[in-house]
């Protein structure tokens, strides 16, 4: 089995979000980048498949040279090879087309991506890739078992979960549940050393138009101060929720 884990390089979850003075771009000054949390769960799940079922495991990212530290981290966690598609990720459709090309040329059976990137919250790259490649697809995947070319997936639905049977080749949009928080792999010294020897292939992008363009960014209006109600004045709280906020 050949597995490709798609990794997006995103601001650390604790980052302060600011935009450039002309409001046209995210201001990366002082921002620490990490593997997208949803992709971390997918990468660990892929490591188990590699270790228990003998898969080849590659990771791919669409991005400039600045994403390489994040890719080295994925190699240190245990991926065998990394592929960087050398282009700025213009939008979800553009990224999906680049990754679809890599999947097609590499003959991958299983593509593990995340349910969404925590930066632009698109939640679209894995599904678009599946459509472009005519591969099976399960989104919000919280459980994955592979046996031969059969796959059993658990999907989070509103109010519960659903079990699906499908076949490889398969793309999933994964999230927590693929593995538990306590299972997440972090790079150790040996992994970091070994990662230096592993291949990080840089490939040129294919021609593709994005479907969207972000023209302008703003921050939400600053929030008014909280209205505090004393614990012995709960009638007043109910009154506020009913009359002022009109939510009960």
């Amino acid at each position: 089995m050949k597995i490709l884990v798609c990794i997006s390089n995103v601001p650390d979850t604790t980052s302060k979000i600011n935009f450039t003075a002309d409001h046209t771009a995210f201001d990366t000054t002082g921002v620490q980048f990490v593997i997208n949390p949803n992709d971390e769960y997918g990468l660990t799940r892929a490591m188990w498949l590699k270790e228990k079922q003998g898969a080849a495991l590659h990771v791919a990212t669409v991005g400039g040279a600045s994403v390489e530290p994040t890719m080295r981290k994925a190699l240190a966690i245990g991926a065998d090879e990394a592929i960087r598609i050398d282009a700025e990720p213009a939008d979800g459709l553009f990224v999906a087309r680049q990754l679809a090309e890599v999947v097609k040329n590499g003959g991958y059976d299983l593509v593990i991506a995340g349910r969404e990137s925590i930066d632009y919250n698109g939640g679209m790259v894995p599904g678009m890739m599946a459509a472009l490649l005519d591969m099976n697809f399960v989104n919000n995947c919280i459980g994955l078992e592979v046996d031969g070319n059969k796959a059993v997936c658990m999907r989070e639905i509103d109010g519960g979960k659903e079990t699906l049977e499908t076949t490889l080749p398969l793309v999933i949009g994964g999230q927590k549940g693929l593995v538990e928080e306590s299972d997440l792999r972090i790079p150790n010294m040996r992994g970091i050393m070994m990662a230096r020897q592993k291949k990080l292939n840089v490939v040129p992008p294919v021609d593709a138009n994005p479907g969207t363009q972000d023209q302008r960014f703003d921050k939400p209006a600053p929030k008014g101060a909280v209205k505090l109600v004393a614990p012995d004045q709960l009638d007043q709280l109910i009154n506020l929720l009913h009359k002022e906020a009109k939510v009960i």
Partner: peptide, 14 residues
């Protein structure tokens, strides 16, 4: 909304 509700984008869809 983008950046997990920490910002808004005005996006042109072509």
């Amino acid at each position: 909304t983008v950046f997990s509700n920490k910002g808004f984008a005005h996006t042109q869809v072509d």
